[in-house]
């Protein structure tokens, strides 16, 4: 009963892993063999096996980011065989399971590649640019206390649901990693849409989109050319429609802006 395929046998795999000592060091791909990998393991559990082996041999384990291993914290971020989060659609790396691979496979594992995401070490990258974009305006300016009763602001279910869909972005950065321009438009648009859809967000609608887009450009993310690989590779299904909403919000803001900087 455990697992999908009771006949699945343990696998032996070749891993080609990006190793890089620190932000300034030159990196390279290093080959490793892993043996007896259960198809029921998650991808990260397979890397745990590799790291335990390495450490026992006195070698440095491969650094990678992960935490909740439930697909919600957005920490994990591996570029597997040329795809963000690997071959399974709608899945973060931590929710990818080895039953998607076959015995004898060679798997290439790289970090996100983008100027705005410098490598910390091996497969771990610095995504603090995302935080700075949110700090530029990804919020509604309310202090704690003094807010009206929650039911004083009725919101049509359809709008609330759409805002929720946009709000489910986990900020993993797969959109940036998958984009040939390393654009952060899908990430930024998800937050802009969520807050533009909700009545609470209307007050700061214009300044929000202008400030967030300005910060995005400052961080060195590329421009959007409407290819859509971001949405295709997004593990939580953030829709490309959000980018259309962002563009509309941005144009509307610029057309009537008090902030012509």
């Amino acid at each position: 009963m455990a697992g999908s395929n009771p006949n699945a046998k343990p696998m032996n795999l070749t891993l080609k892993v990006w190793r890089q000592k620190n932000r300034n060091a030159q990196g390279s791909i290093v080959d490793y063999q892993v043996k007896d990998i259960s198809p029921d393991m998650s991808f990260l559990e397979m890397l745990d096996v590799l790291n335990e082996d390495l450490l026992r041999q006195g070698e440095e384990p491969v650094a990678f980011d992960h935490d909740c291993r439930e697909g919600i914290c957005g920490s994990c971020n591996l570029f597997i065989n040329g795809r963000a989060h690997g071959p399974e659609p709608g899945t973060t790396t931590c929710q990818l399971h080895m039953r998607k691979f076959n015995d004898g496979d060679t798997i290439t594992i790289e970090p996100w590649r983008a100027n705005a995401f410098p490598v910390n070490k091996d497969l771990s990258v610095d995504r603090s640019a995302f935080d700075r974009i949110i700090q530029a305006g990804g919020y509604i300016s309310v202090n704690t206390g003094g807010t009206p009763d929650a039911n004083e602001i009725p919101i049509p279910k359809e709008i609330a649901d759409r805002a929720f869909e946009a709000a489910t972005c986990i900020a993993c950065g797969a959109c940036v990693a998958s984009c040939k321009n390393a654009s952060a438009m899908l990430f930024v648009s998800a937050k802009v849409s969520q807050l533009a859809l909700l009545p609470q967000g209307h007050v700061e609608r214009k300044s929000r989109v202008e400030n967030m887009v300005a910060q995005m450009d400052k961080e060195g993310f590329g421009a959007c050319t409407n290819i859509g690989s971001c949405a295709a590779e997004c593990p939580v299904g953030i829709s490309l429609e959000n980018i259309a909403i962002l563009n509309r919000e941005f144009l509307a803001a610029k057309a009537t802006s008090n902030n012509l900087a």
Partner: peptide, 22 residues
Amino acid sequence: VNIIDQCVAQGVPFAREYGGLL
């Protein structure tokens, strides 16, 4: 009760009924 008010004001998209209430 204050927490729910606070979160809604922040734009937390709680589930809603068709009438628009929580």
